[in-house]
């Protein structure tokens, strides 16, 4: 599955970049995230509970920032498992100056591969669920960045 979009955030690129590359700050916006463990500056482990249709699974996801260039871009790779299900994802983010001074537009794209039980029995609902979760995650990030001032 491939997703992409653009999000306008009323904050500077430096601010947005610092926020989204800090697992302790961005982590709380991840869908269903229950805990974040920082292994080192570029490796994290998240536990998240995800529901698709009538199935709920608790994933353990290893995340790695494989490339970053502050305050312009970052690439993050994720691989996670829940009993009977697995997820592999690659996300890419580019930050550009927004139309208004002091604002940022985040251009993002993600390729998500879901395998196993969730993909099999939740197939018809996966894409819709993923879109909803992505929307919620960006809403959350924007709100938190604005709140940080």
């Amino acid at each position: 599955m491939e997703f992409s979009g653009a999000v306008d955030i009323p904050a500077t690129r430096d601010h947005v970049f610092a926020f989204v590359t800090d697992p302790n700050r961005v982590g709380a916006c991840g869908p269903g995230v229950e805990s974040i463990e920082v292994i080192d500056a570029t490796h994290f482990r998240a536990k998240a509970k995800v529901g698709v249709g009538f199935i709920t699974a608790r994933f353990v996801v290893d995340l790695e920032i494989t490339e970053q260039r502050a305050p312009d871009m970052a690439i993050i790779k994720a691989r996670g498992q829940a009993p009977g299900s697995a997820v592999d994802a690659l996300g890419r983010m580019n930050l550009v100056d927004g139309a208004e001074p002091g604002t940022t537009t985040m251009l993002w794209a993600a390729e998500v591969n879901l395998s196993g039980m969730l993909a099999s029995v939740g197939a018809r609902m996966v894409e819709g669920t993923a879109n909803k979760m992505i929307g919620q995650a960006f809403d959350c990030m924007r709100a938190k960045i604005v709140a940080e001032g």
Partner: peptide, 14 residues
């Protein structure tokens, strides 16, 4: 099957 080989009919709903 989807392109990842996931069976798309794993319950009697599908």
């Amino acid at each position: 099957y989807d392109e990842l080989g996931n069976n798309q009919a794993g319950t009697f709903m599908d």
